[in-house]
Amino acid sequence: MKLFLQEEKYAGVKLLDGSPYYLTLENIEKLNTERVINLLNRMEEHGQDRIQYINVVMDATFLEGADILEHMGYQLKSRFSEFERDLLTGSLNSNDASNMTYYSAKELGEKLFLNMWESCMKGSLKMLPLCTR
């Protein structure tokens, strides 16, 4: 699948491979209808019997993409606002930093990471992907 996305016509499109659970596709807004459909069909072929679902994250203003996804059987799962804080230019309160310990997912191991992730995501609107099939 990653080799397929390296074709020039799919430049800028991102794939997050969360096998065996999901494939996530991002940045499809610049693709024409034919390429979106082709890409989704290829993802479905690739994921058949290997993953639980495919989700697509895209800009809410990409109405044509939403129409394509609905026509192909994808369902809108959530609408949420995204916030961010620039840690390079902002300053953290010293109390905030002292209460945090950082580990990579590799250091934690897959089982502990997934348990922590599930615990953190409980009740979150982002728990469900934007569009799934």
Rank of each mutant, 00 (worst) to 15 (best):
L39M: 10
C120Y: 00
L76H: 11
T101E: 14
K106I: 03
Y53P: 05
E34W: 12
E110L: 15
T101W: 12
L88Y: 08
G73A: 12
L92C: 10
W117D: 03
R133D: 01
R133F: 00
G18W: 07
E84I: 09
I68E: 15
L92K: 05
M100S: 09
T24W: 06
V56S: 07
G18F: 07
L130W: 00
Y74W: 11
F83R: 04
E70Q: 13
Q75L: 14
K14P: 00
L3P: 03
N93Y: 07
R133C: 01
T89F: 09
T24P: 00
R50P: 13
A66L: 03
L128C: 07
L31Y: 10
E107P: 04
V56H: 06
G65S: 04
T89N: 12
F4Q: 04
E8D: 07
G65C: 04
N95T: 04
L5K: 04
L114P: 03
A105N: 13
R133E: 00
L88V: 09
L31I: 10
L88E: 09
Y22H: 15
I68W: 15
Y102I: 15
E45Y: 06
R35Q: 14
F83I: 05
K30A: 13
L25W: 03
L76M: 08
S124H: 00
L76F: 06
L108Q: 14
L16S: 12
E82Y: 09
M43S: 05
K9A: 08
L63G: 06
M121P: 01
Y102D: 07
L125C: 01
E29S: 03
E8T: 07
V57M: 08
E84Q: 10
N41G: 06
M100K: 14
G47C: 06
V57Q: 10
C120I: 00
K2D: 06
G12E: 04
N55M: 13
Q48S: 09
E107D: 04
K122I: 01
E44C: 07
